[in-house]
Design a protein around this nucleic acid. Sequence first.
DNA 1: CGTAGTCGATTACATCTGTAGACGATAGGT
DNA 2: ACCTATCGTCTACAGATGTAATCGACTACG
Lengths: 132, 132
Amino acid sequence: MADPVSGGERISDAEHAVMEVLWHRAPLTANEVASAVAEGRGWSLATVKTLLSRLVAKQAVMTQPDGKRFLYSPALARTDYLGGESKRLVERLFGGRAAPLFAQLAEAEALSEADIAEIEALLKTLRREAGR
Amino acid sequence: MADPVSGGERISDAEHAVMEVLWHRAPLTANEVASAVAEGRGWSLATVKTLLSRLVAKQAVMTQPDGKRFLYSPALARTDYLGGESKRLVERLFGGRAAPLFAQLAEAEALSEADIAEIEALLKTLRREAGR
DNA sequence: CGTAGTCGATTACATCTGTAGACGATAGGT
DNA sequence: ACCTATCGTCTACAGATGTAATCGACTACG
C-alpha cells in the first residue's frame, strides 16, 4: 500500500519554500502564501498557485474551503519532512552513518560554537536516555 | 567566468553513483565503471557512458587518453562534494545551523551508538582545536 | 442584469534527470 | 584491404521541476 501520509511523494526545492511558509503560519489563502514567499524569491502568484496544487496532489498540503476560495494548511509535519530529508542525505552520501556527516561539516567549517555546544548538550541527553 | 572546479555544476543522484565508483578506484575505462556501478543498479553501458559524459561536461570528471579510449578520473574531491552537499542541506533545511540537524537525526533514530561515540570524540578534538 | 475582478484548474514550455539506442570513427584480426 | 568489435558522441524520450499564462466559474459592484 502507498503510505497514507508522511513520506509519500517527493517535495521539490521550490515546493519546500511554500511548505516553509505554511509551517510558519496556517491556514493561509493562496495570495497570502504568495506574498509571504515572494520575499526573496520573485515568484508570480501563478507560480505559487501551481506549487500549491502540486503539494495538494502530493498530499503534503490540505485545503479547506472558505467561501469561494481555499485555505491551505500543511498536511505533513515539518519534523517528519526534515527527518526524512536528513535521513535521505545520510543514507545517500554517508552510507547511513551520521558521524561522517558531522566530520564533514566540521571540516567545511559549518559548525559554529553554538552548534557545538548544542550538540554536546544533545549528546548528553541521548546518553542518559540510552543508559536507562 | 564559470568557476573553475569545485562547486560548479550540480551533480545528480545517478551521477553521484558514478563518482562514487571513481572515488573508490581510478582511473577506469567506461566499461570498468559500468561493471562496477552495475552491481545494484541495472544500468546499461550506454547509460553509464552518458553519465560519464555529463560529468566530464560538468568538470567533475577528467579524462586521459589511453589509445583509442579514455580513462576517467575524478576531478572533484569526494570531500569537497560531501562537504558541499552537507552544507547545502543544512542551509536549505536548517537555516545553516547544524545543531537542529542533529536533533532531527536523533529524533528519527538515525544515530547509532557508534555514531554517538564518534561524534563525541570529534567534539572533543574540535574543542581542543578551538581552544588553542 | 451585466461586467470586471478573483479563484482554482488547465495548459504550456524550457531545463534537468534517468535511461538508452543509433551513429561514426577506428583499431585489430585475417 | 575488409570486417567486426569497440569507443565516444549524438540523439531520443519520458518524467520531474521551475516558472508562468490562460481559461472557465463565480462573485460582487454598479
